[in-house]
Amino acid sequence: MNQPSRAEKFLMPPGSRKLSYTPDTKLANAGEFVLMREDHTLGNMLRMELHNDPNVVFAGYQHPHPTDHRILIKVHTNGETNPVRAMREANQRLTEQVESLKTQWESELESVRDSGAI
């Protein structure tokens, strides 16, 4: 078929890395993350969580092209931290949030067990 393979949307190209980081050549404490085979789901979530960090000066994400299945996240921090650390902390906070949602959901399901929704 004359169309790109649908598997490209989620299959990692051989030998590629999920996450890579390139520091900015002109600015200190700035750089760009490349997230392979991810979309707005994670891009937007990480960006918004980075905004919650007072040491992050700038955080933005980009989905370069509809057939280019990766996400670019640009992060610029002040001297207190660096982009990699800010990203690690943002990721950690998100993990805690989703973890808590999961446990809450499990106990909610327990309470509606008889409805057939589980």
Binding site: K18, L19, L42, L46, R88, N91, L94, V98, K102, W105
Partner: peptide
Amino acid sequence: LHTFKILLSKLDSIKVGLELIE
């Protein structure tokens, strides 16, 4: 429930990636 599990595994893959970078 699956949704939360998948989100967690996605976030975990970022964590692994960041550890590698560090």
